[in-house]
């Protein structure tokens, strides 16, 4: 009896592993930044290079960093969702304009609407590397204490926002409130 049971159990186990493997997206790379302090940056603002955008100024509140570029198809796709999220006024959305052309990027915001509280221009792509960005659009959630809480890779959807971002934003506000 054991002669058949053990190989069959092993076969089932292997099947489970392979089946789970099928469901996983190999292009998704988990971020080592989650739970760690967000990389700091101070970059020129897209609209006015004389006005720097600094991650330090955002401390004390939860905020969202959205990495985008006009060359990025997924960014066009998620743009209306970002506008809808911005209208909720839950948290500021900070844009990181990644390796883009300044004029094109400004045109994009004029044509499609601007969901961002402020946009930092990362023309060299160094800040993006600090954040472990490898494919726009990517959206990070940062807590009031400056710790990265979540990262979404792929165009933002209302479903992801409601399911992954909103609960974490509320939890981070509650945690920050209980400390003060």
């Amino acid at each position: 009896m054991a002669k058949f049971v053990i190989p069959f159990a092993l076969f089932l186990l292997l099947g489970v592993f392979l089946f789970v493997g099928l469901q996983r997206d190999p292009s998704y790379v988990p971020s080592p930044l989650i739970g760690k302090p967000a990389p700091q940056f101070s970059l020129p603002s897209l609209q006015d290079a004389a006005y720097p955008v600094s991650s330090q100024e955002l401390l004390g509140q939860p905020w969202v960093l959205n990495v985008w570029g006009t060359w990025c198809g997924g960014c066009r796709q998620e743009h209306d969702t970002l506008l809808a999220i911005a209208r909720q006024k839950t948290v500021p959305i900070v844009g990181l304009n990644w390796k883009d052309d300044n004029a094109l990027a400004q045109q994009w915001l004029r044509d499609l609407g601007n969901p961002y509280a402020v946009v930092a221009e990362d023309r060299e792509g160094r800040t993006a590397i600090d954040w472990g960005v490898y494919g726009a659009p990517e959206t990070f959630l940062i807590g009031p204490d400056g710790v990265v809480l979540f990262k979404h890779i792929a165009p933002m959807t209302m479903e992801v926002w409601n399911k992954e971002f909103l609960p974490r934003i509320e939890a981070s506000r509650a945690a920050a409130g209980s400390q003060s």
């Binding site: 790379v29 590397i129 954040w131 472990g132």
Partner: peptide, 8 residues
């Protein structure tokens, strides 16, 4: 590189 992109 690992700090930013993980062991992958």
């Amino acid at each position: 590189m690992i700090e930013r992109y993980g062991d992958f």
